[in-house]
Amino acid sequence: MCERKDKKTMVQEQAATQISATTRPLRERVGISIKNGLKARYTVQEVVESIQKAEAAGIQQIWMPQIGPLDTPTIFTAAALQTQQIRFNVGVVPTYTRHPLILAQQALAFDQVAPGRLRLGIGSSNKVLIEDVYGVPMGKKPLSQTREYMSVLRAAIETGQVEYQGEFFQVHYHEETTASIPLIISALGEKAFETAGEISDGALPWLAPIPYLLEKALPALKKGAQSQQRPAPPIIAGVLVALSEDQQAVQRAVLQQIEHYLGLPYYIRLFANAGIPLGPDGTGSEELISALVAQGSAAAVEQRLRQILATEIGELNLTLIPVVDEQKEYAQLLRIIGNL
Protein backbone atom coordinates (compact mmCIF):
# COMPACT_ATOMS: atom_id res chain seq x y z
CA MET A 1 0.00 0.00 0.00
CA CYS A 2 1.37 3.39 -0.96
CA GLU A 3 2.00 5.99 1.72
CA ARG A 4 -0.76 8.59 2.01
CA LYS A 5 0.35 12.16 1.40
CA ASP A 6 -0.57 14.88 3.85
CA LYS A 7 -2.90 17.65 2.72
CA LYS A 8 -0.13 20.26 2.51
CA THR A 9 1.99 18.11 0.19
CA MET A 10 -1.00 17.36 -2.01
CA VAL A 11 -1.95 21.03 -2.33
CA GLN A 12 1.64 21.91 -3.21
CA GLU A 13 1.74 19.23 -5.93
CA GLN A 14 -1.55 20.43 -7.39
CA ALA A 15 -0.33 24.01 -7.45
CA ALA A 16 2.92 23.00 -9.14
CA THR A 17 1.03 21.02 -11.78
CA GLN A 18 -1.32 23.92 -12.46
CA ILE A 19 1.62 26.32 -12.78
CA SER A 20 3.36 23.93 -15.17
CA ALA A 21 0.22 23.55 -17.28
CA THR A 22 -0.40 27.27 -17.59
CA THR A 23 3.16 28.59 -17.94
CA ARG A 24 4.28 26.55 -20.92
CA PRO A 25 4.76 28.58 -24.12
CA LEU A 26 1.30 29.47 -25.41
CA ARG A 27 1.82 27.74 -28.74
CA GLU A 28 2.45 24.44 -26.95
CA ARG A 29 -0.93 24.76 -25.21
CA VAL A 30 -2.92 25.14 -28.42
CA GLY A 31 -3.93 22.44 -30.86
CA ILE A 32 -6.13 22.48 -33.93
CA SER A 33 -8.84 20.06 -35.01
CA ILE A 34 -8.37 18.33 -38.33
CA LYS A 35 -11.47 17.42 -40.37
CA ASN A 36 -13.81 17.86 -37.42
CA GLY A 37 -17.60 17.80 -37.47
CA LEU A 38 -20.35 15.30 -38.14
CA LYS A 39 -20.58 16.39 -41.76
CA ALA A 40 -16.86 16.15 -42.49
CA ARG A 41 -15.91 13.70 -45.23
CA TYR A 42 -12.32 13.06 -46.16
CA THR A 43 -9.76 10.57 -47.41
CA VAL A 44 -6.74 9.39 -45.44
CA GLN A 45 -4.41 11.27 -47.78
CA GLU A 46 -6.36 14.52 -47.30
CA VAL A 47 -5.97 14.25 -43.54
CA VAL A 48 -2.27 13.42 -43.80
CA GLU A 49 -1.70 16.44 -46.04
CA SER A 50 -3.58 18.69 -43.59
CA ILE A 51 -1.41 17.46 -40.74
CA GLN A 52 1.76 18.01 -42.78
CA LYS A 53 0.67 21.60 -43.49
CA ALA A 54 -0.06 22.17 -39.82
CA GLU A 55 3.39 20.91 -38.82
CA ALA A 56 5.05 23.08 -41.48
CA ALA A 57 3.22 26.09 -40.01
CA GLY A 58 4.66 25.39 -36.56
CA ILE A 59 1.57 23.81 -35.00
CA GLN A 60 2.58 21.67 -32.03
CA GLN A 61 -0.42 19.35 -31.83
CA ILE A 62 -3.53 18.35 -33.72
CA TRP A 63 -6.84 16.82 -32.70
CA MET A 64 -9.21 14.51 -34.49
CA PRO A 65 -12.31 12.71 -33.17
CA GLN A 66 -13.43 9.20 -34.03
CA ILE A 67 -16.33 10.22 -36.26
CA GLY A 68 -17.20 8.90 -39.69
CA PRO A 69 -16.22 5.81 -41.66
CA LEU A 70 -12.42 5.96 -41.20
CA ASP A 71 -10.44 4.93 -38.13
CA THR A 72 -8.63 7.86 -36.52
CA PRO A 73 -5.76 5.93 -34.80
CA THR A 74 -4.99 4.27 -38.14
CA ILE A 75 -4.99 7.63 -39.95
CA PHE A 76 -2.71 9.04 -37.26
CA THR A 77 -0.26 6.19 -37.71
CA ALA A 78 -0.07 6.94 -41.43
CA ALA A 79 0.45 10.64 -40.68
CA ALA A 80 3.11 9.94 -38.07
CA LEU A 81 5.21 8.18 -40.72
CA GLN A 82 5.10 11.34 -42.86
CA THR A 83 5.76 13.95 -40.15
CA GLN A 84 8.56 14.63 -37.71
CA GLN A 85 7.36 15.95 -34.36
CA ILE A 86 3.75 17.12 -34.35
CA ARG A 87 1.75 15.47 -31.56
CA PHE A 88 -1.45 13.55 -32.15
CA ASN A 89 -4.57 13.73 -29.95
CA VAL A 90 -7.46 11.31 -30.45
CA GLY A 91 -10.46 13.08 -29.07
CA VAL A 92 -12.34 10.84 -28.49
CA VAL A 93 -12.91 7.12 -29.12
CA PRO A 94 -16.38 6.00 -27.95
CA THR A 95 -15.92 3.37 -25.25
CA TYR A 96 -18.93 1.29 -26.25
CA THR A 97 -17.64 0.66 -29.78
CA ARG A 98 -14.19 -0.73 -29.03
CA HIS A 99 -12.87 -3.07 -26.36
CA PRO A 100 -10.17 -1.40 -24.21
CA LEU A 101 -7.64 -4.10 -25.10
CA ILE A 102 -8.15 -3.42 -28.81
CA LEU A 103 -7.64 0.31 -28.27
CA ALA A 104 -4.57 -0.41 -26.14
CA GLN A 105 -3.10 -2.52 -28.95
CA GLN A 106 -3.66 0.30 -31.44
CA ALA A 107 -2.06 2.84 -29.11
CA LEU A 108 0.95 0.60 -28.43
CA ALA A 109 1.47 0.08 -32.16
CA PHE A 110 1.36 3.83 -32.77
CA ASP A 111 3.87 4.45 -29.98
CA GLN A 112 6.39 2.19 -31.70
CA VAL A 113 5.97 4.23 -34.90
CA ALA A 114 6.12 7.64 -33.18
CA PRO A 115 7.18 7.34 -29.52
CA GLY A 116 5.79 9.99 -27.20
CA ARG A 117 3.60 11.68 -29.80
CA LEU A 118 0.16 10.28 -28.90
CA ARG A 119 -2.47 11.31 -26.39
CA LEU A 120 -5.54 9.12 -26.32
CA GLY A 121 -9.03 10.28 -25.45
CA ILE A 122 -12.04 8.15 -24.58
CA GLY A 123 -15.66 8.91 -23.81
CA SER A 124 -19.05 7.23 -23.64
CA SER A 125 -20.44 9.31 -26.56
CA ASN A 126 -24.25 9.47 -26.86
CA LYS A 127 -27.25 7.23 -27.36
CA VAL A 128 -27.92 8.51 -30.87
CA LEU A 129 -24.60 7.10 -32.03
CA ILE A 130 -24.16 4.12 -29.72
CA GLU A 131 -27.69 2.73 -29.73
CA ASP A 132 -29.17 3.94 -33.02
CA VAL A 133 -26.09 3.40 -35.18
CA TYR A 134 -24.14 0.61 -33.47
CA GLY A 135 -27.12 -1.05 -31.79
CA VAL A 136 -25.26 -1.34 -28.49
CA PRO A 137 -27.28 -0.65 -25.32
CA MET A 138 -25.68 2.02 -23.13
CA GLY A 139 -27.64 1.36 -19.98
CA LYS A 140 -27.84 3.92 -17.21
CA LYS A 141 -24.20 4.02 -16.06
CA PRO A 142 -22.06 5.47 -18.86
CA LEU A 143 -19.70 7.18 -16.41
CA SER A 144 -19.18 3.96 -14.47
CA GLN A 145 -18.49 2.15 -17.75
CA THR A 146 -15.94 4.83 -18.68
CA ARG A 147 -14.24 4.45 -15.30
CA GLU A 148 -13.87 0.68 -15.77
CA TYR A 149 -12.74 1.15 -19.36
CA MET A 150 -10.01 3.53 -18.22
CA SER A 151 -8.82 1.07 -15.57
CA VAL A 152 -8.38 -1.71 -18.12
CA LEU A 153 -6.92 0.56 -20.80
CA ARG A 154 -4.35 2.17 -18.51
CA ALA A 155 -3.19 -1.11 -17.05
CA ALA A 156 -2.89 -2.72 -20.50
CA ILE A 157 -0.83 0.16 -21.88
CA GLU A 158 1.33 0.99 -18.88
CA THR A 159 1.96 -2.46 -17.36
CA GLY A 160 0.76 -5.07 -19.85
CA GLN A 161 -0.86 -6.87 -16.93
CA VAL A 162 -4.63 -6.83 -16.47
CA GLU A 163 -6.63 -8.93 -14.04
CA TYR A 164 -9.92 -7.12 -13.85
CA GLN A 165 -13.34 -8.22 -12.68
CA GLY A 166 -15.90 -5.46 -12.91
CA GLU A 167 -19.50 -4.83 -13.82
CA PHE A 168 -18.70 -4.10 -17.46
CA PHE A 169 -15.35 -5.78 -18.10
CA GLN A 170 -13.81 -9.09 -17.08
CA VAL A 171 -10.28 -9.12 -18.46
CA HIS A 172 -7.28 -11.45 -18.16
CA TYR A 173 -4.38 -10.05 -20.17
CA HIS A 174 -0.62 -10.50 -19.85
CA GLU A 175 1.84 -9.03 -22.36
CA GLU A 176 5.29 -7.47 -22.22
CA THR A 177 4.80 -4.46 -24.54
CA THR A 178 4.16 -1.24 -22.63
CA ALA A 179 4.29 2.52 -23.20
CA SER A 180 3.67 5.84 -21.48
CA ILE A 181 0.66 7.38 -23.23
CA PRO A 182 -1.47 10.10 -21.58
CA LEU A 183 -5.13 9.12 -21.33
CA ILE A 184 -7.89 11.73 -21.24
CA ILE A 185 -11.67 11.51 -20.98
CA SER A 186 -14.47 13.62 -22.37
CA ALA A 187 -16.46 15.59 -19.81
CA LEU A 188 -19.56 17.79 -19.80
CA GLY A 189 -21.22 17.63 -16.41
CA GLU A 190 -19.59 18.36 -13.09
CA LYS A 191 -19.62 14.69 -12.08
CA ALA A 192 -17.72 13.81 -15.23
CA PHE A 193 -15.12 16.48 -14.47
CA GLU A 194 -14.78 15.11 -10.95
CA THR A 195 -14.21 11.65 -12.42
CA ALA A 196 -11.64 13.09 -14.83
CA GLY A 197 -9.81 14.56 -11.86
CA GLU A 198 -9.74 11.15 -10.21
CA ILE A 199 -8.58 8.95 -13.09
CA SER A 200 -7.46 10.83 -16.19
CA ASP A 201 -4.55 12.86 -17.55
CA GLY A 202 -6.89 15.53 -18.88
CA ALA A 203 -10.54 16.51 -19.30
CA LEU A 204 -11.84 17.22 -22.80
CA PRO A 205 -15.14 19.13 -22.94
CA TRP A 206 -16.96 20.07 -26.13
CA LEU A 207 -19.20 23.12 -26.57
CA ALA A 208 -18.65 24.18 -22.97
CA PRO A 209 -18.47 27.97 -22.39
CA ILE A 210 -15.24 29.13 -20.75
CA PRO A 211 -16.99 30.71 -17.70
CA TYR A 212 -18.68 27.36 -16.99
CA LEU A 213 -15.32 25.58 -17.21
CA LEU A 214 -13.68 28.00 -14.80
CA GLU A 215 -16.53 28.39 -12.31
CA LYS A 216 -17.98 24.86 -12.17
CA ALA A 217 -15.89 22.32 -14.09
CA LEU A 218 -12.50 23.29 -12.70
CA PRO A 219 -13.53 23.08 -9.01
CA ALA A 220 -15.08 19.65 -9.71
CA LEU A 221 -11.90 18.50 -11.46
CA LYS A 222 -9.77 19.64 -8.52
CA LYS A 223 -12.13 17.96 -6.06
CA GLY A 224 -11.76 14.64 -7.87
CA ALA A 225 -7.98 14.94 -7.97
CA GLN A 226 -7.83 15.83 -4.30
CA SER A 227 -9.90 12.78 -3.39
CA GLN A 228 -7.23 10.57 -4.95
CA GLN A 229 -4.31 12.63 -3.67
CA ARG A 230 -3.06 13.35 -7.19
CA PRO A 231 -2.33 16.54 -9.12
CA ALA A 232 -5.26 17.98 -11.04
CA PRO A 233 -5.00 17.27 -14.78
CA PRO A 234 -5.61 20.07 -17.29
CA ILE A 235 -8.90 21.05 -18.83
CA ILE A 236 -8.53 21.11 -22.61
CA ALA A 237 -11.19 23.57 -23.72
CA GLY A 238 -12.76 23.24 -27.15
CA VAL A 239 -13.02 26.68 -28.76
CA LEU A 240 -14.74 27.40 -32.06
CA VAL A 241 -13.06 30.00 -34.28
CA ALA A 242 -14.82 32.09 -36.94
CA LEU A 243 -12.59 34.53 -38.81
CA SER A 244 -15.26 36.95 -39.91
CA GLU A 245 -16.70 40.23 -38.65
CA ASP A 246 -20.07 39.52 -40.25
CA GLN A 247 -22.09 38.55 -37.17
CA GLN A 248 -25.05 37.14 -39.07
CA ALA A 249 -22.81 35.03 -41.32
CA VAL A 250 -21.00 33.69 -38.26
CA GLN A 251 -24.29 32.80 -36.58
CA ARG A 252 -25.43 30.87 -39.64
CA ALA A 253 -22.13 29.05 -40.06
CA VAL A 254 -21.89 28.03 -36.41
CA LEU A 255 -25.50 26.85 -36.21
CA GLN A 256 -24.95 24.73 -39.29
CA GLN A 257 -22.02 23.01 -37.59
CA ILE A 258 -23.46 22.50 -34.09
CA GLU A 259 -27.21 22.13 -34.70
CA HIS A 260 -27.01 18.37 -34.04
CA TYR A 261 -25.82 18.98 -30.49
CA LEU A 262 -28.45 21.57 -29.63
CA GLY A 263 -31.15 18.93 -29.47
CA LEU A 264 -29.29 16.42 -27.31
CA PRO A 265 -30.49 16.33 -23.68
CA TYR A 266 -27.07 16.44 -22.01
CA TYR A 267 -25.99 19.45 -24.08
CA ILE A 268 -29.26 21.19 -23.24
CA ARG A 269 -28.46 20.54 -19.55
CA LEU A 270 -24.89 21.76 -20.04
CA PHE A 271 -26.00 25.05 -21.58
CA ALA A 272 -28.60 25.59 -18.85
CA ASN A 273 -26.00 24.84 -16.16
CA ALA A 274 -23.73 27.36 -17.86
CA GLY A 275 -26.46 30.01 -17.52
CA ILE A 276 -27.50 29.95 -21.17
CA PRO A 277 -30.78 28.01 -21.40
CA LEU A 278 -32.01 27.35 -24.92
CA GLY A 279 -35.69 27.81 -25.71
CA PRO A 280 -37.59 25.54 -28.12
CA ASP A 281 -37.88 28.49 -30.50
CA GLY A 282 -34.11 28.96 -30.60
CA THR A 283 -33.93 31.72 -28.01
CA GLY A 284 -30.55 31.76 -26.33
CA SER A 285 -28.65 30.47 -29.36
CA GLU A 286 -27.15 33.87 -30.15
CA GLU A 287 -25.82 34.22 -26.60
CA LEU A 288 -24.52 30.64 -26.70
CA ILE A 289 -22.63 31.21 -29.94
CA SER A 290 -21.10 34.37 -28.52
CA ALA A 291 -19.88 32.35 -25.53
CA LEU A 292 -18.48 29.48 -27.60
CA VAL A 293 -16.84 31.24 -30.53
CA ALA A 294 -13.69 33.34 -30.82
CA GLN A 295 -14.73 35.49 -33.74
CA GLY A 296 -13.82 38.57 -35.72
CA SER A 297 -10.58 39.69 -37.30
CA ALA A 298 -7.35 37.75 -36.90
CA ALA A 299 -6.23 40.25 -34.28
CA ALA A 300 -9.49 39.92 -32.34
CA VAL A 301 -9.33 36.13 -32.41
CA GLU A 302 -5.71 36.11 -31.25
CA GLN A 303 -6.57 38.47 -28.40
CA ARG A 304 -9.44 36.22 -27.29
CA LEU A 305 -7.25 33.12 -27.33
CA ARG A 306 -4.62 34.89 -25.25
CA GLN A 307 -7.31 35.94 -22.76
CA ILE A 308 -8.44 32.34 -22.31
CA LEU A 309 -4.88 31.07 -21.99
CA ALA A 310 -4.27 33.62 -19.21
CA THR A 311 -6.84 31.77 -17.06
CA GLU A 312 -6.52 28.35 -15.40
CA ILE A 313 -7.60 26.60 -18.61
CA GLY A 314 -4.74 24.25 -19.40
CA GLU A 315 -5.00 23.92 -23.17
CA LEU A 316 -7.15 24.82 -26.16
CA ASN A 317 -8.45 22.61 -28.94
CA LEU A 318 -9.45 24.96 -31.78
CA THR A 319 -12.03 24.10 -34.41
CA LEU A 320 -12.36 26.38 -37.43
CA ILE A 321 -15.89 27.32 -38.46
CA PRO A 322 -15.58 28.28 -42.15
CA VAL A 323 -17.60 31.37 -43.05
CA VAL A 324 -16.57 32.44 -46.57
CA ASP A 325 -13.32 30.81 -47.73
CA GLU A 326 -12.33 27.73 -45.73
CA GLN A 327 -8.79 27.41 -47.09
CA LYS A 328 -7.99 31.08 -46.56
CA GLU A 329 -9.47 31.12 -43.07
CA TYR A 330 -7.66 27.90 -42.12
CA ALA A 331 -4.35 29.43 -43.24
CA GLN A 332 -5.18 32.50 -41.13
CA LEU A 333 -5.83 30.33 -38.08
CA LEU A 334 -2.50 28.55 -38.54
CA ARG A 335 -0.76 31.92 -38.59
CA ILE A 336 -2.59 33.04 -35.45
CA ILE A 337 -1.45 29.95 -33.55
CA GLY A 338 2.06 30.47 -34.89
CA ASN A 339 2.06 33.99 -33.42
CA LEU A 340 1.22 32.85 -29.91
Rank of each mutant, 00 (worst) to 15 (best):
Q112H: 13
V301S: 03
K141P: 00
E176D: 14
V152Q: 04
R306N: 08
T83Y: 01
Q228F: 08
S124M: 08
S244Q: 05
Q14D: 08
I75F: 06
Y134T: 02
L153E: 05
P25I: 09
A21D: 14
Q84F: 03
M138R: 05
E148G: 06
A155Q: 15
T97H: 04
R304F: 02
P219E: 09
K222S: 11
W206H: 15
G91I: 10
R119T: 15
L316I: 05
A114W: 06
R119M: 12
L255I: 11
P209K: 02
Q251T: 07
S227R: 14
V324F: 11
T23H: 14
A40K: 03
L240Q: 09
R119I: 09
P182D: 01
A253M: 04
T23K: 09
L153C: 04
Y212C: 06
Y330W: 14
A298E: 13
A187L: 00
W206R: 10
Q170W: 06
A298G: 12
V171D: 07
A79I: 00
Q332S: 15
G338R: 03
R87E: 15
Y134M: 07
L218M: 13
L218Y: 11
S33G: 15
Q61S: 13
E158Y: 11
L288H: 08
L120P: 08
V162L: 08
P25C: 10
I321F: 02
K5D: 12
A272N: 09
V293S: 02
R335I: 06
G68M: 03
P115K: 08
H172T: 12
I19T: 12
L292Y: 05
A56E: 13
S151T: 14
A114C: 09
L103V: 03
A196Y: 00
Q106N: 09
V11I: 13
K191M: 12
W63R: 00
K39D: 15
L320H: 08
V93Y: 01
P234M: 01
L183A: 07
P277L: 04
P137N: 07
Q18T: 15
K328W: 12
V136S: 05
Y266S: 11
Q105M: 14
A331L: 13
V128H: 11
R41C: 12
E3M: 11
F169A: 06
S285W: 04
R4P: 00
G31S: 11
